[in-house]
């Protein structure tokens, strides 16, 4: 997994609540058996005017210039800002894969769906929960200031605004540790092999029908 420590970036304002994972990456792209390459199809139905299918040359497709992802000002943004319940719906990890492949590293919203939130940390993405009022302030600041950028610092759990305001954010200690160091869970869990084996043996002895 890619490490995340800190970044300073333009912020993409996606002013919607309940952005679901079907919207982040539509189902036709889920037929892929790979992990990479979903970025050009992130938000496909909102981003292009035609219907996208796997294997198309996306650079030739007509863009929906009203959609924020296509606006020149926000090109290269590594931070995505959205409203509540971001990432709801399907558990598809293709959604964080697509966001990461597009170039996002941080997503800020008042709330996230549980599975999506979890999936982000497995892919080097940092989802940050911020009060609805602060999120609203950020949307307004982006609208008001052309060169608005944020600095996100995971180590110190801080977001710095251009005017010097600092927002603190919460992050689970274990997930922070994994993200800062680019650690994958499986290797860490396998340090506990003996404990898992002992647990399993006891469980199967007590509930033998589970082994059948």
């Amino acid at each position: 997994m890619r490490k995340f420590t800190q970044l300073n970036s333009v912020v993409m304002p996606l002013d919607r609540a309940n952005v679901d994972t079907d919207a982040i990456i539509p189902k036709q792209f889920l037929k892929s058996i790979n992990r990479a390459g979903f970025g050009p199809n992130a938000f496909d139905e909102w981003r292009y005017l035609d219907h996208g299918e796997p294997g198309m040359d996306n650079s030739q497709r007509p863009l929906n210039m009203d959609f924020v992802l296509n606006q020149p000002r926000f090109q290269g943004a590594q931070i995505l800002l959205a409203r509540e319940n971001f990432g709801c719906g399907s558990s598809r990890e293709h959604a964080p894969w697509a966001l990461e492949d597009y170039g996002f590293r941080v997503i800020i919203a008042p709330s996230f769906a549980d599975i999506f939130f979890n999936n982000c940390f497995k892919n080097g993405l940092l989802p940050i929960r911020l009060d609805a009022e602060k999120v609203d302030t950020l949307f307004k600041s982006i609208a008001a200031q052309d060169d608005f950028k944020l600095t996100v610092d995971l180590e110190n759990q801080r977001i710095a605004l251009p005017d010097g305001t600092v927002y603190a954010f919460e992050v689970d200690a274990f997930r922070k540790h994994c993200l800062l160091n680019g650690l994958d869970d499986i290797g860490l869990t396998l340090q506990h092999v003996a404990e898992i084996q002992a647990f399993e043996a006891k469980r199967h002895a007590a509930q033998p029908w589970l082994v059948a």
Binding site: R35, S91, R92, E93, P96, I115, N118, N119, K122, N123, D185, I186, T189, L190, I196
Partner: peptide, 12 residues
């Protein structure tokens, strides 16, 4: 669960 977790459960 997500696919990373699918792999995690498979392995552990």
């Amino acid at each position: 669960i997500g696919t990373s977790e699918v792999e995690h459960v498979m392995a552990t």
